[in-house]
Amino acid sequence: MTEKLLEVKNLAVSFSAQGGEVQAVRGVSFHVSKGETIAVVGESGCGKSVTAQSIMRLIPEPPGKIKGGSIHFNGRDLAALSEKEMQKIRGKEIGMIFQDPMTSLNPTLTVGDQITEGLLTHQDISKADAEKEAVDLLRLVGFADPEARLKLYPHQFSGGMRQRIVIAMALVCKPSLIIADEPTTALDVTIQAQIMELFKEIQEKTGVAIILITHDLGVVAQAADRINVMYAGEIIESGTVKEIFYDTQHPYTQGLLASVPRLDGDRSKPLIPIYGSPPDLYSPPAGCAFAQRCEYAMEVCSKYAPPVTYLSGQHQTMCWLQDERAAGMRGPKVTIK
């Protein structure tokens, strides 16, 4: 069995706000093995980014707080470490790629200064040697003439190029895990494909593990090994890519698949939206969080939280439709070929 690099167990994160407490992440559990790519997908506001920031301990306290659970990385519980201890891990052992590369980069510093900063912080290395490492990294992420690129500023690059620079910054200290939070947001589909292909090439060359956070199932179809589907702060279905795309069990995952544009079949048919809105996490529902939007909802769904049903070694879901007493209630499966 592949060794687990990261294991998150029953993670709960809340934010104090006017009028109460927002329960943004509610008992999330998953793991990442060495050299593996997992995806965390779901609508905006479902808790994907909060989960990622909690792993990096970037949740501002207050108003945020890790209320429970553990985050074990290489044998250490990150949730229990001090800020000083976490500073030694961020960038060096775990790299992070944030959503918007333009706001992630300092407009007043050259690209070379920003890439070498991590090396100079975490390693005993000279400025000249750090710049050589930066040149190699820019070449790795697809830049021609990387020596000249080091002297340029972020505004002198296109959006796709800035994203590659941010990826290089995340790789600079050779971390064993990279968290990529919506790395293809605001990029056109051609550049999206290039960035996803770049992740695959980097993983093959370096063996780094990747957590890919996105709202788009289509983006992760060719990139991920396993997929965790989040809704209202919970992972409601998880499994291998094949299991999620070809043996979907949760109505919410079916809805996400049905809303993805198709290249085959009748293109004149409109996309099928998921009607309604996510629940108010000031006061999460007692039962299934998706019940109010689910066309297959039963009385039990709104009263009691569904248990986790293990469908195979890696495929699991939280849905009352899996109960034997709900036989005949399931809708047709939705798949993407």
Score class of each variant (00 low, 15 high):
G68F: 05
M230F: 02
A180Q: 03
G239Y: 02
I125T: 15
V189C: 15
Y282N: 15
V41Q: 09
L271P: 06
D129C: 01
G118N: 06
L263K: 13
K34E: 15
A148G: 12
A224Q: 01
R325S: 09
F245R: 03
P154I: 05
E117W: 07
C294D: 00
G68C: 09
S238Y: 04
Q249V: 04
S104M: 07
I272G: 01
Y275C: 07
V260A: 14
P60T: 07
D266W: 10
M298I: 01
M86C: 09
S312N: 00
L263S: 14
S104V: 03
V135D: 02
T317P: 00
D216N: 11
Q114M: 08
D188K: 06
S49I: 01
Q203R: 15
V28N: 05
D323G: 03
G118D: 05
K333S: 14
D124L: 05
T185P: 11
I179E: 04
I272S: 12
E324W: 01
P146E: 02
L138A: 11
K67E: 14
M230N: 00
E61K: 13
K333H: 10
A134I: 08
L150K: 12
T309W: 00
G19E: 13
A289N: 06
T37D: 13
K269R: 15
T37N: 10
E21P: 03
D225S: 09
L105E: 14
P62Q: 06
A17L: 12
P284G: 04
V208S: 09
D280E: 11
R267P: 05
S14C: 10
R262T: 15
A291L: 02
E204D: 14
Q87N: 10
A291N: 02
E324Y: 06
G27S: 09
S70K: 13
G276D: 00
S44R: 03
Q292S: 13
D145P: 05
S104Q: 05
K48I: 09
I244D: 08
W320D: 00
H250R: 02
I178P: 01
V13Q: 06
I94Q: 06
G287W: 00
Q316N: 14
G142A: 09
K67I: 12
E147K: 15
S126M: 01
K92M: 07
V50Y: 06
H31E: 11
I244L: 15
M230H: 05
G45S: 07
E147D: 08
I244Q: 11
G328V: 08
G47W: 00
A327Q: 10
K9N: 13
F290T: 01
I97R: 08
L311H: 02
Y275M: 12
G142N: 09
Q123N: 11
I125G: 11
L119R: 08
Y153Q: 08
